[in-house]
Structure formats: C-alpha cells, structure tokens
Design a protein around this nucleic acid. Structure first.
Lengths: 212, 212
DNA sequence: TAGATTGTTAATCGATTAACAATC
DNA sequence: TAGATTGTTAATCGATTAACAATC
C-alpha cells in the first residue's frame, strides 16, 4: 500500500466508477466478484482492476476474488465518503438551483450547509430546507460555520474575486462550474472542474469525426 | 496532419480549453500568441501545445508564433462548432431545466430542437422558446426532425430502454447525465458522460488525502 | 488436492517533455 | 542578418497490459 499522495489521478478517477458498480452489485445481492467481472463492467482489463486496487491494499483473496460489500466499503473509505465535509453553494441561478436540489451530497462525503446569491430578490428562498442568503453575509457565515468546500455556480467574472475571499476564509476545496480556472492561481487548494461547454465541444468533435 | 480518427482523447480533451483561452485573447484584442504563452495559461508545456496543434496541421509561423484569430477558428473547425447538430433533451426535471436554460448550445456546435418528459403535467411548459413534449411523441418527432444527439437528464432505469429506442431512431451521440453506462453496450455511438457524483467523490478524495 | 484468482513483477505501449534544425 | 519560435524527431516518463508465482 503506497502513500495516498502518490496515487495517480488516472486511478483516482476510476474509483467512483468501481464504487458505483460495487453498490449495484451489493444491492443485487451479489457477494463476490472477480477482477475479470469488474473489468468487463468497467470496460477495462482485469489487470488494471487489480493494479488499481492494489494501490491501496490487498483487498482480494486468491482463488476467490473480492468480497463485494467489503470492497465497496474500502473504496468508500478511500474516497473519504464517510467524512461529511461542510459545503456552501454560491450562485442560485438555474444551475445552482439544480445542483442544490438534484445532488445527493450526503452519500458523496459532503453536507450542504449554506446557499448564497448576490441577487436580493432570491434572499429567503428555501431550497432543500436551506434559505438562500445574501452574499454580503458570506464572511460572517464562514467564520461561524467553517465550510471546507465551495460550489461555484457563478460567472467567471464573479468567481475570480470570490475565490480570493473564500480561500482567505479557509475554504480548501472547490467544485467549480464557472469558467474561471482557479487551479492555476491557487495550486494549494483542491479543485474539481465541471465544464459543460468543454464536454459539449468534445461531443461535437466525436460526431464530426465519425462523419468523415 | 494525421487522420482525425487517430488523435488521442488526451489531445481532444485539451482542445476546448485552447479554444476558450484563444477566445479570451481575441476578445482582449491580442493578435499573436506563442506556444509558451499558451502553455502557461493551460498549465502545461510549450512542447505539448506544439505537439497538440501539430496533430491537425502547422498553424504557426517560426519566429512569430500563432495568429490568435486564425488558430481559434481552426480549432473551432476541428471541434465541429461550425456545424449545428440537432439535439433533443429528455427529462425536464431540475437538471434538465437548468441544462436547457443555462447552456449556450449554438456556440458549441449544437441546436436544441426539442424537449421531452414523461410527466404529463410538464407538457406544454415552454423553456427557451421550446415547448416540453410528452415522451409518447418521441418517435414521430424524431422521424420528422432527425435529431443527431440526445441529452439524457433522466434516471438510470429510464435511460436504458430509451437508448435502444433513440439509437433505432438514428441518434448518433449522447450527452449523458444519467448513470446508465451506454457506451459499453453501444460502442458505435458517441457518448460524453457527465457524472456529477463521480466528480464530487473525486473532490472528496482530494480533500481527504490533503488532510493526511 | 486441483482449480481459480489474486498480488506483483516485467514488458509494452502511449503520452509528455526535451532538444534542435528549419525558417520566418 | 540576428533573434525568435515553430515543427518534428528523439528521449523520458508514466500508465496499461501481460505473465506468472503465490496461495486461497
């Protein structure tokens, strides 16, 4: 078992998919699974599955395979899903509202504790039992509640100054839906970008190239 | 210039970021850019930038660099942004609504032409000038309008049978927000997955591992 | 025990980086 | 021309796949 800091991001990005598949198997009442079966579902190779899992420890048993429930729990623990990290969401427009209402934060290791927007007219609106607060109250709220994560559902221009503020307030991670590339300026914080536009353009490329 | 089919997905996934940065530069009135400048903004190396671009052709000029506007246009063309592909969106819940209203499809090579949901109560609701149609009219609509792309904002269980139907109706690409892993069963279609849960879990890992 | 399947090392493959001649 | 920067080949690095001894 290597130090967690050394695990490549290729491996990390596959862990949630293992986790999802193992959850499905567990729900289906399956008790054991082999690296070959896992790989077929993942669209990879048995070798890769074993290599990936062995980054974190020997969870299997020769001649048997892996215990579904145990492996699911191990991967959940590796991903940190057992530790609920406090998160605030900023920008309650169409996207922010959808994220706040649609995502099951608890099962992914987070707890949504606050919603913010600069629009006065949204203040007081309640989503998922949380009131939307005006952005002017951000400092006070953060000093009191110490959120570890910020979810940015705001335009690029608003994101830039806000990141500075949030990092000063102790925010350590960002789920970034804005086009502001904060990872470049703040290499010390964890950033997970979701760029819809980039994703769509990639799809466009695939369709175009299949036409040729 | 190699055949488009041979370009690795690592390169393709970087193209939208080049495109975004070049658009910013163009808007800022910058006329030329060097591979070194591009790489600093991208967080990569000048070497990688030149390698990436040379997959598609020699767009630069020795001693000068790249013409911003020309390079932007070339990358846009490579990504197929100039050809509007007809898309339908299925599932007008929180997420589907946000996608329909929030995304600028036109500039990414798509044209949203239809919205569908199985919920009778949503039929007739208008989003972005498009009426929500009942899912029972999907076949007829597709035979008349021949959409090339489907955007799946529905649960896994609904997605599975629907994909079969959509592919039979000639849909060639999917922007998939569901947890159904259709790429595995249908390798012939283009699939771009957006898995919020996976993205969040990856962020959870990063935060956890920085704690250790 | 025999069969199955892991954990792990070695081989291969691909992607990134470095170097430099070509040339604007 | 001299300086700058590309296009492209070669070297390096890392990730994936193959192989197989260990062992349940």
């Amino acid at each position: 078992m290597r130090n967690a800091a050394e695990i490549s991001s290729s491996v990390i990005r596959r862990l949630p998919r293992y986790y999802r598949f193992l959850s499905d198997l567990k729900d289906a009442g399956v008790a054991r699974v082999s690296s070959r079966e896992l790989s077929e579902r993942m669209g990879s190779t048995a070798s890769q599955v074993r290599q990936d899992l062995n980054c974190f420890g020997g969870f299997g048993q020769q001649g048997y395979g892996y215990n579904v429930e145990q492996l699911k729990n191990e991967i959940g623990r590796i991903l940190g899903l057992d530790h609920a990290k406090k998160a605030i969401l900023i920008g309650v427009g169409n996207l922010g509202r959808a994220i706040a209402q649609h995502i099951h934060f608890e099962s992914k290791g987070f707890q949504l504790i606050g919603l913010f927007d600069q629009k006065e007219s949204l203040t007081g609106l309640v989503l998922r039992n949380l009131p939307v607060r005006h952005i002017s109250g951000l400092d006070e709220f953060c000093r009191e509640n110490l959120p570890e994560v910020a979810i940015l559902c705001i335009p690029k221009e608003s994101a830039e100054p806000l990141c500075e503020q949030l990092i000063a307030l102790g925010v350590k991670g960002f789920w970034n839906f804005s086009h502001y590339d904060l990872a470049l300026k703040y290499p010390q914080v964890a950033v997970e970008n979701v760029h819809f536009g980039d994703s769509l353009m990639t799809l466009s490329y695939q369709l175009r190239s299949s036409e040729l």
